[in-house]
Design a protein around this nucleic acid. Structure first.
Lengths: 254, 254
DNA sequence: CGGCGCTTTGAACTAGTTCAAAGCAAGTGG
DNA sequence: CCACTTGCTTTGAACTAGTTCAAAGCGCCG
């Protein structure tokens, strides 16, 4: 993207101010003047770290701030109109949570930390006001909304797939793509959510997901050790979610 | 909502100016001053009517305007990253299309008319500028984005359901709710899309949808005559999509 | 009237679910 | 430091809802 983000993610470099933050160019727009950057800095504050399982915000609460994830991972869940619970999204560092519930300015999702995580708070109203004066910020905000919408579309695309192996393949490749954006090693994925939550996100049963990891591993597509997934064969995974390949079958027992 | 929209939809009342438009309060915010309303009017123009099957915009085209649907119905389709086609949304009068592709200001979806339809064009950039001066318009725009996001969430909620009858029930009830918002008769739904498109939207096979309509009808939940659906039993349909009821079984043949 | 496309129906098949139980990892307390 | 508890994950076997393939209806338009 730009010189400032060409290095691998280094948490030690994170600092209190946005200007020095390792996320720069990921969460906030690059190329903002020093003066405006100072104004932004004044608006943003870092919350105290979230422990695994802790809630960032609840569905139904007022939407006042956006949350920039600096470290860790989040999961967004919601209960639909009919009371069915669902997993809506997962957030990685550099991504922004809190955009759900724009409609009535009330969150529709509940967001919890999947591991020890750190977030910065961004007051929505002030950002909006500032955006009228800083075109780059306005663009950034629209991009942010677009990105959120893209994520929903990707989720829909996954749910649209018929076969379970296509869904899991699509999910893993999508995650790898997000890792690449963060300059993380995209071969080694850290699935911080439980198999049950992942299954729920994919619209599958827990057992099906578990079996798929086993089969993918037998086929040499990846190595799965609990939360850690090491991808070995991107090409075949890509082919899978394009539906070009036959289902990944179980090993013959005879 | 407000006094201006308490009457039933009357297409004959539609006029060239927003101030006189029968959609008022649905697409644009009510309670805007006369002066500002005149400015808005100046920005908006009505396109020539779309015939059934005609394309409003193509995926990949630049995102410059929003489209307020005055009459008819639209379908938004997209091809995901892996080349799988999917039906993304349906639009009813008073709803706004064109919000997809906010990310790179390039549409990700292709939108076609399902029947003879009329839309108004709203230049995005100008709306954005005006929004900085008119707080109500800013609120309206955020609400619009929130509404779009809500629709995606509802679609996800449908795809999240396991059983096919739950999905169809949830879709029909959601559509009825939107009819109510428009002051249309929510008992009589006009399914302008083909069974195939509906099946695609629901993540089911065409045949499954067809069978479900037959079974729903046998159970007395609705009357289905091709495109026209008359809902007879909202309570049972609601129970269905809550998963409280057993699957709608086929009639015993003996 | 005739043809074409959409819709419905039928029958066989299959992928995924469900229920049940065993395995494994991590943390707790004796 | 090890036995035990607890929760998550994996495996197994039977079942079933939905798909797929095939063909017949039906309505609409020329």
């Amino acid at each position: 993207m730009n010189a400032g983000t060409d290095r691998v993610f280094d948490l030690a470099q994170l600092d209190r101010t946005c200007a020095m933050c390792g996320m720069r160019g990921l969460c906030l727009p690059d190329g903002i003047g020093a003066e405006d950057m100072r104004r932004l800095d004044a608006l943003i504050r870092e919350k105290k770290p979230l422990l695994a399982g802790q809630t960032l915000y609840h569905a139904g609460s007022a939407m006042r701030t956006l949350y920039l994830l600096r470290a860790g991972s989040l999961m967004s869940t919601m209960v639909d109109a009919d009371g069915t619970p669902m997993v809506h999204a997962f957030y990685l560092p550099g991504e922004v949570a809190g955009l759900d519930g724009l409609h009535e300015r009330r969150h529709r999702c509940t967001v919890v930390a999947l591991e020890r995580s750190r977030v910065c708070e961004l007051p929505l109203h002030e950002i909006q006001n500032l955006a009228c004066r800083i075109p780059d910020l306005k663009e950034w905000f629209l991009d942010l909304l677009g990105h959120e919408s893209d994520q929903d579309h990707e989720h829909l695309a996954i749910m649209n797939k018929r076969r379970a192996d296509e869904r899991l393949a699509a999910f893993l490749l999508g995650l790898a793509r997000r890792y690449r954006r963060l300059k993380r090693d995209h071969n080694t994925l850290s699935l911080t959510m439980s198999r049950k939550d992942l299954a729920c996100y994919l619209g599958l049963a827990e057992e099906t997901v578990s079996r798929l990891f086993t089969r993918f591993q037998e086929r040499g597509l990846l190595e799965a050790k609990r939360k850690t997934i090491r991808i070995r064969d991107f090409a075949t995974l890509s082919g899978l979610c394009r539906g070009e390949l036959s289902p990944v079958e179980e090993k013959m027992s005879a």
